[in-house]
Computed example of a mutant assay.
Amino acid sequence: MQDILVVVDMQNDFIDGALGTKEAVAIVPKVEEKIRNFKGTVFFTRDTHETWYLDTQEGKKLPVPHCIRDTDGWQIRSELDKLRKTEPIDKETFGSTDLADELVALNIDDEISSITFVGLCTDICVISNALLIKAALPEVPIIVDAACCAGVTPESHETALKAMKACQINVVE
């Protein structure tokens, strides 16, 4: 049995770059502490867009170039990246089916006792991945550490936490 921590999109553009917020900046030390103290395997996701981002469906609805591959904004925040022991899982959209596939395979080989999510943004990528993994592994407890997450706004953060609770995801503070 093993515990898994998924660090979602803790990238420069979401922290203090193109789409950064003061709430995102504030969780960086908490996420760093969570990673340092976690007894289990830690995965990182990385929002990844190409130079033609603005031509995509997402880019048309959110016309702010961000997390463009190989830019500084795409990089995982340096103090967190230096703690990384696995390759980041690049994802081109909110939820990562690659992450789901990897966790399902891992659960077959070495049963997962829990999966905890932290990161950005609570109301977009954290909720998308938590629900995707809940659907893929319905018997594995899914946890979201709200103190280590931030949303686009404080209100949308709270709305996402309520939605995840309604879907039997354990939200802890």
Rank of each mutant, 00 (worst) to 15 (best):
L80N: 05
A130S: 11
E111K: 15
W52Q: 12
P29F: 04
S96C: 09
T122W: 03
W52E: 12
N129L: 02
D110F: 12
E92P: 09
V118I: 13
F38V: 10
Q57C: 06
F38K: 10
R46K: 14
E33I: 09
V126F: 05
D98T: 14
T56H: 08
I89A: 13
D98I: 13
D47K: 02
P63S: 05
P63K: 04
C121F: 15
P88C: 05
D109L: 14
P88F: 02
I27A: 07
V31T: 01
K60L: 08
T45D: 06
D55C: 08
T116H: 06
E92G: 15
K85Q: 14
K85P: 06
I115W: 06
N129Q: 04
L62R: 15
P65N: 04
D55G: 09
I68Y: 00
D90N: 13
E102G: 11
S128N: 13
L83E: 00
D55T: 11
L131D: 03
V118M: 03
C121D: 11
L120P: 00
I124W: 00
I112R: 08
G40Y: 03
T93F: 10
N37H: 13
V42H: 08
Q75R: 13
V28W: 01
I27F: 07
S78L: 10
H49E: 08
A105K: 15
I127L: 11
N107C: 09
L99D: 03
E50S: 12
I27P: 03
S78W: 06
K85G: 06
G40S: 08
T122D: 05
K91I: 02
G119P: 01
R84S: 12
P65C: 03
D81Q: 13
I108D: 14
F94L: 13
D47T: 06
T71K: 07
L83K: 00
K85F: 08
N129A: 02
P88W: 01
D110K: 15
S114H: 11
I127E: 09
T116L: 05
E102V: 14
I127F: 05
S78Y: 10
D81I: 04
I89R: 11
E58H: 09
H66W: 08
L83A: 00
E111I: 13
T41A: 13
N129S: 01
G73R: 00
P88D: 04
D98M: 12
I127N: 03
